[in-house]
């Protein structure tokens, strides 16, 4: 029964990926990609990676889909490019891609047995962190440096997006609201956010011991904020607002400060003092959740569209 489910999931994933590659219009391809993201989330459940499944469904499908749809609407009236690739190029590309896939498949079928794993090492050190979710422990304790750098990447990407605004709009606000807001959207934007915020807080809190965590919580918060902005209930903030910029960097800044305090308190960068690891990690996570939510929201909103007020 489960094997059948796996086969159906894999077939659906491949069919949707081919649809994205072959669909005539971009909008159809993007809708296919969103469905692909949700199916992929189910696939991650079957791989027993609930944390990844939540992230994939929220970011891979949902937020990326919204971002792509926004730009598709913006660039729609461009003359649709004909298939300009020559048949010889297509054939060469197909041979190359099949070779890459075959190579990867060969590797997967011949993975070493018994498989190498870090699970025992992760389990052995889990007690010292006070956490029970091993994925959160990897993200915020054993490999915290990766997570810190990833936050910096998010900020750098946002700086890049903002810099693409024309000079006279620099510091202004992005515009998400469509010309006509449909009634159901306006209704949902009033009803959903309280529940969304509650789910996000739960997901942040439970992430220490069970699947969930900062990204998932931050993404849900960002989705609620985007919903409110899409429905035009609140305009997007001016990108030069000081409060906005402080919110963007509070997470990485707290993370970095704790990292340097580690030298004084525990003898190393990003080291946590024994016994206090869990409260420190939760503090970092709380600040990060806020920053991730604001960063994701602004990344999806895109560059400034209006001149700064005053």
């Amino acid at each position: 029964m489960n094997a059948l489910l796996d086969v159906v999931l894999v077939a659906g994933l491949l069919a949707l990926a081919l649809h994205v590659a072959r669909a005539r219009d971009d909008q159809g391809a993007i809708v296919g990609f969103i469905a692909f993201g949700f199916l992929l989330g189910l696939g991650w459940v079957r791989l027993a990676s609930i944390d990844v499944a939540l992230t994939e469904a929220a970011i891979g499908g949902g937020v990326t889909g919204l971002l792509l749809l926004r730009v598709e609407a913006h660039t729609r009236d461009s003359s649709a490019p004909d298939r300009t690739a020559r048949p010889i190029t297509i054939a060469a590309a197909a041979v190359l891609c099949i070779a890459v896939t075959a190579g990867l498949a060969f590797v997967i079928l011949n993975l070493p047995s018994p498989p190498p794993t870090q699970a025992p090492a992760a389990a052995a050190a889990l007690d010292a962190t006070g956490l029970e979710n091993p994925v959160t422990a990897v993200l915020l304790a054993y490999r915290a440096l990766d997570t810190l750098l990833e936050k910096v990447v998010l900020i750098l990407a946002l700086v890049g997006v903002w810099s693409l605004a024309p000079d006279h709009l620099w510091g202004g606000a992005p515009e998400l609201r469509p010309a006509v807001v449909p009634e159901p959207l306006s209704y949902l934007a009033r009803v959903l956010p309280p529940f969304g915020v509650l789910i996000a807080v739960y997901m942040f809190w439970v992430g220490a011991d069970a699947p969930g965590g900062t990204f998932q919580a931050g993404t849900i918060l960002a989705a609620m904020w985007l919903l409110v902005m899409l429905a035009g209930l609140r305009a997007a903030p001016d990108t030069r607002r000081v409060t906005l910029r402080l919110l963007l960097i509070v997470g990485p800044a707290v993370f970095l400060a704790v990292g340097f305090l580690g030298f004084a308190m525990a003898g190393g960068f990003l080291a946590y003092p024994a016994g206090a690891a869990k409260p420190i990690i939760l503090g970092i996570e709380a600040a990060l959740t806020l920053s991730i939510a604001v960063t994701l929201g602004m990344l999806v909103s895109g560059p400034s569209k209006r001149a700064p007020t005053s």
Partner: peptide, 9 residues
């Protein structure tokens, strides 16, 4: 698993 979460972001 944690690397994939970082990768997705």
């Amino acid at each position: 698993q944690a690397m994939v979460i970082t990768g997705i972001v």
